[in-house]
Design a protein around this nucleic acid. Structure first.
Lengths: 352, 352
DNA sequence: TTGTATGCGTTATCAG
DNA sequence: CTGATAACGCATACAA
């Protein structure tokens, strides 16, 4: 578990450039290290003579002083590091979110430690332990199930946590896309094209995202008087292409709808596959709508009509929220707008 | 530059779970902290009484002791952290590589600090500074230009560096895919289909990857006696869809080849766009071959024939190499095999 | 084999 | 406003 921590006795590879410490700066400026530290701390501006501050800053610049994060971390008990838990970087929807998070954090002097959970509770548990040992100042979690003891424990022990596109019963900060509105737009779009038998392939039931999207689907369908089409919902065990294909295949074997709304874009691709396997064409026979508008959605065959979530903004907002919690402790919630992007995978229903 | 480092005076959010330190473990085991430290260090096995070791380990387990990385980092002058510089996580080829890196590092108790350079030298410079302040034990760099002072300086000062799919004049470790062989397979495939006028849309000339792929293209073409088709090479300014479309558009305006090999899959998508804009069909009018086999390549319209590089393996190898350098200082090089994946974007040339 | 003491670089506390 | 001192948690050189 702890692995080796030995130095590099025979290794020639170690930074040989002696970096100046605050002691060097203090000596050069003719002040005490403590004073130098204060002079360099913007928070303490005004509590130090302008002249002293100037001398210290000048010395720091001249020596090329950069504060050693390791020493600072130990002393302040903060690592300026945020643990970021996502299901899988391989799902194209996450990289843009992660990018938003990283940029937002780095601008504030924080770094992200990114880890993939593969939606495995054990892996998530383990990763939280590992990242906690590194004293992450907070966590951004895009992988939690609705009922997640590990995350709940984190929140319980007052560690700042921001949930991304996943809600839990626990009260903590969150940033989610307005999926309900997005689902309404998707259904309205299909109804507008003349569809009535609209199917929905959801993701795993354990994720709140699945619930939100499914509940919205059922509600909008009922409101449109289309509740007469039951049995048009099927669940994929993962938000992945193969599981999406399998799930939609099961649905198709029961009944062939004229349209399907997929739980996300990966499942939508799975729907493409299932249709192709059965010799059905999209959109001529069956229209497909995705969710997320992940990168390359527009270049698929056919180009995917999908509900676009603001991936970069979601990441940026998550970064902002976690920093807010670290600084003033107030958890907040953000609901970000979505937009239906109409492309080639949707069209009028076939004349049967 | 240094930002705030104040605590959270009014914040309620801070870990309230007092974590046991090695002192607690030592006390519980009835030994001195130094002894406890040694007992927990696998390197020193044998230099400690089995009985003592047992007692310490038992106490550690019982108390749920996890070594505080911050303290360890400061003392050992190592952060167990690797800086990972990539051009852009938004390019789908990188997430799988990053995934491979992360998993490889984490298994060895290391974490990755990932940063996007957007292929900007200034940004890269800045990031190296930021990550150096965090005492990264090494760098995995997938973003360096052929001539890169910042990276050269890093290598010069004996910081372990592994280059990924980018070579520099500097001698340091690297892991690259066997692009030359891949290019040969691509050209052979096209020639086998009957193509002769084969174009190549390269990436930016500053990257070694571009050079390698282009040189291989020219060599293979010449060897096949097809050097008679000059002017069939065009350069995209970035490895991105829009630049790929622009570049191939310029080429098409000069001359319409029967096939094109793109510098990477993003450029290949750009080629699709350029063809479509001009009313040309793929593969009926022009065959397209990509490079990388990034995720979703098989679901594009049409499914992309491309040279697959082992993305996960590349990441894993990079992790392995950097850990090797940290431990015994020997830089090594790895050349990983590629494979042509034939899909729908290539076919016989049109009868003109 | 184990205990002791020290220091990694920084900043918080307390005195002056 | 500034100097002196201690401490964050750990690992290691040295002493026993």
């Amino acid at each position: 578990m702890w692995l080796d921590r030995n130095g590099r006795p025979e290794s020639d590879y170690a930074c040989r450039v002696p970096k100046p410490t605050i002691q060097d700066v203090a000596r050069a400026a003719g002040v005490h290290p403590g004073t130098a530290s204060r002079a360099l701390n913007p928070e303490l501006a005004g509590r130090i003579t302008p002249e002293t501050t100037r001398r210290v800053k000048e010395a720091a610049t001249r020596l090329g002083y950069v504060p050693d994060q390791l020493g600072r971390n130990l002393r302040t008990r903060r690592s300026h590091t945020i643990g970021v838990l996502i299901p899988d970087l391989g799902n194209p929807v996450f990289p843009p979110i992660v990018r938003g998070i990283e940029d937002g954090l780095r601008d504030a002097g924080y770094e992200a430690l990114i880890a993939n959970t593969d939606d495995s509770p054990e892996r998530e548990d383990h990763l939280i332990k590992v990242l906690t040992a590194r004293h992450c100042d907070g966590f951004i979690i895009a992988s939690s199930r609705r009922d997640d003891p590990a995350v709940a424990a984190l929140v319980e022990s007052k560690v700042p946590v921001v949930l991304v596109n996943r809600l839990m019963d626990t009260a903590t900060a969150s940033v989610v896309s307005d999926d309900a509105t997005g689902m309404r737009a998707a259904v309205d779009h299909l109804i507008g094209l003349g569809h009535a038998a609209i199917a929905h392939v959801t993701g795993p039931a354990t994720l709140s995202m699945t619930q939100v999207r499914r509940a919205a689907f059922e509600e909008v369908m009922a409101a449109a008087g289309l509740a007469a089409y039951p049995d048009l919902i099927e669940r994929a065990d993962r938000y992945a292409v193969d599981e999406g294909a399998r799930a939609f295949g099961r649905l198709l074997d029961r009944h062939i709808p004229t349209a399907v709304i997929a739980g996300n874009d990966m499942i939508a691709i799975g729907c493409y596959s299932a249709l192709r396997e059965r010799g059905l064409r999209c959109p001529e026979d069956v229209s497909v709508v995705g969710f997320n508008d992940m990168p390359l959605s527009g270049f698929l065959d056919p180009a995917l009509t999908t509900v676009a979530i603001p991936q970069n903004d979601i990441g940026a907002a998550a970064a902002q929220l976690i920093l807010g919690m670290i600084n003033d402790g107030r958890p907040a919630h953000r609901l970000l707008p979505v937009a239906l992007v109409v492309r080639g995978s949707t069209g009028p229903p076939p004349n049967r």
